Amino acid sequence: MSVKEDIRSQIIGALAGANFPINTPEELFAALPNGPDTTCKSGDVELKASDAGEVLTADDFPFKSAEDVAKAIVEGAGL
């Protein structure tokens, strides 16, 4: 599995119990198991939820699914 797919899968898994739509970064943090400290790791790549602010913009919201969140973060991070 590629780093991109591994990180994507971890994000989707972390949001398995989330209620959608997610309309704000605060709602996104609240939906994650460890809030802004939730971390996805694959190989040498580590993405912390608190870093999502660097890759997400207001235009990315609302998110309608965990897959939407994963796509936006993975693409925004350039993986």
Rank of each mutant, 00 (worst) to 15 (best):
P62A: 04
I73G: 05
F20C: 07
A18D: 14
F29P: 08
G43T: 07
P21D: 02
G76P: 03
S9E: 15
V45C: 02
A77P: 06
G13K: 14
C40I: 04
T39A: 10
A52T: 05
V69A: 08
S50A: 13
G53K: 08
G53T: 06
F29M: 15
E67D: 13
A72V: 08
T38E: 00
K4V: 11
A58M: 14
D51N: 10
I12N: 03
G53V: 13
A52K: 00
K64C: 06
I7D: 00
E5I: 10
A49T: 06
S42T: 05
T24N: 09
N23P: 14
V45Q: 00
E26F: 10
R8W: 07
T39G: 02
F61R: 02
N34R: 13
T39C: 06
S2R: 11
L56T: 03
K41N: 12
L28R: 01
A30S: 13
A70C: 03
S65T: 04
V74R: 00
L32H: 04
A58C: 09
D6T: 14
K4S: 15
P36A: 07
F61L: 11
G43P: 07
Q10C: 07
L79C: 06
P62D: 03
G17S: 13
L47Q: 04
V69L: 10
V69M: 10
A49W: 07
